[in-house]
Amino acid sequence: MKCSSAKRRRLTDLAVRLFAQVASLLALGALVWILFEVLRRGGSALSLSLLTKGPTPPGVPGGGFGNAVLGSLLMTFLATVIGVPLGLLAGIYLAEYGGGSKLADLIRLGANILMGVPSIIVGVFVYAVLVVPMGHFTGYAGAISLAIIMFPVIARSSGDILALVPASLREAALALGVPRWRVTLGIVFRAAKSGLITACLLAVARISGETAPLLFTALNSPYWPTTLNGPTANLTVTIFNYAMSPYEDWKNQAWAASLLIMLGVLVLAKGTRFLLARRRD
């Protein structure tokens, strides 16, 4: 009796351990499977001419999505230019001025909630406040909705990173009579540089794969972007449109664009961390 109960306990334990290992392998398997399919299907479709040509009319073979690559780069750049300074300023407030105050706590909560707002809602919001008054879809609206997604991400991560800088550094500088803002920008920022760069790049990685907020702000366009003040071609919405199209050629192009996006995002998200870690060694 006693012996069989001990056996059962051991078996249950074994089963749970096995389940835990299988679950981990399952997650790894899903990752490898997704990466493999994107590499295989995208790799066979990707070519230089896809990146240098604009799209052809539906059904006509050839053409590419060079205009979408350029449009995505432009909008991501503009979003970064808006989102990073704003996010860093908010992070400075949280780490340097707010500290543990009630207001700073409330702002942290707000930032966390804002991060959890579905990105498509950000798109609807920007549509309501920018696209409707302007009367047409614009790349600026697309960039702004991306910046709104970046903003809380950078605010929270930079706030946490700045708070890790030892107070003695600040005190030493303040004791020399350096004004507070120069202590922040010249000393605290320098001490936290690599962390801040990583945080910003992670945020850029996050927005460069976003589709939903662009659907009704930047829309998409078959033309090369000459200005952002009009519908602007971008990679992610191009993937969506091409994947849903009936043309085999366009579906292949969607895979090639997916490969491009995936490489971009993974390199930004992982590569920088690797680089920074190596430099520190």
Partner: peptide
């Protein structure tokens, strides 16, 4: 990394694979 893959890639993989 599974969490870093953009949602549109999940969509492509989900629909076609």
């Amino acid at each position: 990394l599974l969490g870093a893959i953009p949602s549109i890639i999940y969509g492509m993989w989900g629909l076609f694979v």
